[in-house]
């Protein structure tokens, strides 16, 4: 049963990893603008053909 201790510590380490990832994401501004990137990904700088097919957001 002592294996539980190893498991608990492993899971906690994993969880701390995710927490750090989340904190980094917030600090680096990934939650600052939750709208524009969703539009930007559909825009293509080089090919105007693709833009024509995009649905307008308005």
């Amino acid at each position: 049963m002592t294996i539980l201790i190893v498991l608990v510590i492993t899971s906690l380490t994993l969880a701390v990893g995710f927490l750090i990832a989340f904190l980094w994401a917030v600090k680096s501004g990934q939650f600052d603008d939750t709208y524009t990137p969703s539009v930007r990904i559909l825009l293509d700088g080089k090919s105007t053909e693709k833009i024509q097919n995009n649905k307008s957001v308005n």
Binding site: T36, V39, R40, L42, L43, I51, N54, S56, V57, N58
Partner: peptide
């Protein structure tokens, strides 16, 4: 700014 074209 009001539309996708503006962003582009």
């Amino acid at each position: 700014i009001h539309c996708t074209a503006c962003i582009w």
